[in-house]
Amino acid sequence: MMSDYALQQAFNALSVGGEYALLALGLAIVFSVMHLVNFAHGDMITVGGYAMFLLILFGVRDPFLVLPFGVLITVLAALLIERVAFKPVRGASPTTGMLTAFGVSIIIQNVALIFGGSRPKAVQTADWLASSLSIGSVQIPVVQVLETVVTLAAIIGLVALMRYTTVGLAMRAAAKDVPVVRLMGVKADRVILSAFAISGFLAGLAGIFILARRGAVDPFMGFAPVLKAFVAAVLGGFGSLPGAVVGGFALGIAEVGLQVLLPPEIAGFRDAFVFLLIGIVLVFRPQGILGERPDFGEKS
């Protein structure tokens, strides 16, 4: 039935979009607070993935231990990278920060390559993640349902955090004026570490779903999804949190839409078409869907 197919694809688009939204949100939070373009974002997922792989290797199989452990390690990786690599370049130009992150990304990938080899290593996340849910006559993979739900929950949680907690208010304020946030008696360090912790947490959540789909870890697994997330963030308006969500879902929908519409001979070109489409959107709206026009008059 056509509508069944449409429903299936709709869930597919929502879950793919949700994954991009989670990752793009993490990028946007860090960018808005410290103007760092974190190219190493995806490699935190890789670190979390290998951590789960190792835990399973040591005989722990309970997904309710393995999955949270993966998220925890992703968060710790984010915090550690901030301390070791990003803190020394704090306050430097965005180019410097971006290249530092790029370097960190290459290092993590290659450390994984040396110790883990380039072949993917199987990671069994949880049986129920790999199963399907029947809604009437439609089969929807549990991963997709869960990913959509978790993404929405994470977004709601994040909105609450940014609105009702002091550190959330401070993060929003720091996006515009760090010195004055410090004048409120808030440590700049605390704001930045919180941003990384949240960004790592969201990446960890996305990582679980990425792993559940792939069923394996490899040194470069984080790169492709995060590249998409970057594109989503630019599409939504770089540095804007609502923009990250909108951009993420828009990209997911565009991808799945093209997958469905493109004839099979040229389906391989999907990513090229998606990027091209976004390029065209940005020609007409350079600041992104929800981005602000750069304001040169304002004192920063």
């Binding site: 020394p88 410097t96 530092t100 370097g103 960190v104 290459i106 290092i107 390559l113």
Partner: peptide
């Protein structure tokens, strides 16, 4: 054999360079 060493080298010099001599 340690495939990945060249990658670590490139990443490390980029990071060090950005920290010490941006």
């Amino acid at each position: 054999t340690m495939f990945g060493l060249t990658g670590i080298f490139l990443g490390a010099i980029i990071v060090l360079c950005m920290i010490l001599r941006p």
